[in-house]
Nucleic acid binder design. Structure first.
Lengths: 136, 136
DNA sequence: TAAGTATGTTAGTGCTATACTAACAACATG
DNA sequence: CATGTTGTTAGTATAGCACTAACATACTTA
């Protein structure tokens, strides 16, 4: 599954912010995203426009929801993040340092590769923070 | 050793190109870098100016040499590249795919973290291509 | 209802990184 | 000296990121 989602670091952070601050059925507000990302609303709007053009979100008057593709991209990224985090922590790297470093490139790793790496580290069911890793 | 060298992807590629196409004591020509990187000379000059301002190269009339800091940065990057490549290939990822993916983020990984990852994969002496991994 | 507050959006600016073409300068070689 | 190679500048363009100022919209409350 090559080149699954071609996004930037900021777009990655934004997808994660949207997913993790939305209730299951309610959209997230622009202002909330801006607060969490510590950015001004116009900056966030720029990022949202790009995510929209890539088909990862829908938005309407400041309300933002992930599309199915957006949710899929979130799942790929977060799974990859947790697998890499496990790998880093198992290697003896500090958890917070691992999380910080891995965030810089988790969104670049191919999902097939992430699955193979997870097998290598023993198919963990959770990341070092205790959050689940899902194998579909 | 946090934040060792703050460079971009293109700058990373350029440092590697310079190191690997220079004879030990002879500088590399701009035109050679441009050919290898498949870029036009003015584009390469822009990259070289940034590398120069970061103290990684010296240049004079199209001749380019890495500074000590530049060589150090090359060594960090290439070691990290080979360690990650080993990890990916040991996980069952195709060698060329591993090389390609790892190139996208090898220059972002902290060198201390890279050392810990290498211990985790058994302190390999070479990468899957057979090139040496140096432990200083 | 009018005034005020909160929220979202546009417009405009600025900077870095990337990459190009066109034009010009410098140098070497025949 | 003419030609050609090589390097450099100048100028253009795009994407990404981030901001302020101004405007629009909507909700709230006096």
């Amino acid at each position: 599954m090559k080149e699954q989602f071609n996004i930037t670091r900021r777009e990655r952070d934004c997808v994660i912010t949207i997913y993790e601050s939305a209730s299951p059925d309610f959209p997230v507000r622009l202002s909330k995203i801006a607060t969490i990302m510590q950015l001004k609303p116009p900056t966030v709007i720029e990022i949202l426009k790009r995510l929209e053009s890539k088909g990862l979100i829908n938005r309407e008057r400041g309300m933002v929801v992930l599309t199915n593709a957006g949710k899929e991209s979130y799942n790929f990224i977060i799974n990859c993040h947790r697998i890499l985090e496990t790998l880093f922590v198992d290697s003896g790297i500090d958890l917070e340092e691992a999380c910080r470093e891995v965030s810089a490139f988790d969104y670049m790793v191919d999902s097939d590769s992430a699955m193979k790496l997870s097998t290598f580290v023993g198919t963990p069911k959770t990341c070092p923070h205790g959050k689940p890793i899902i194998y579909g």
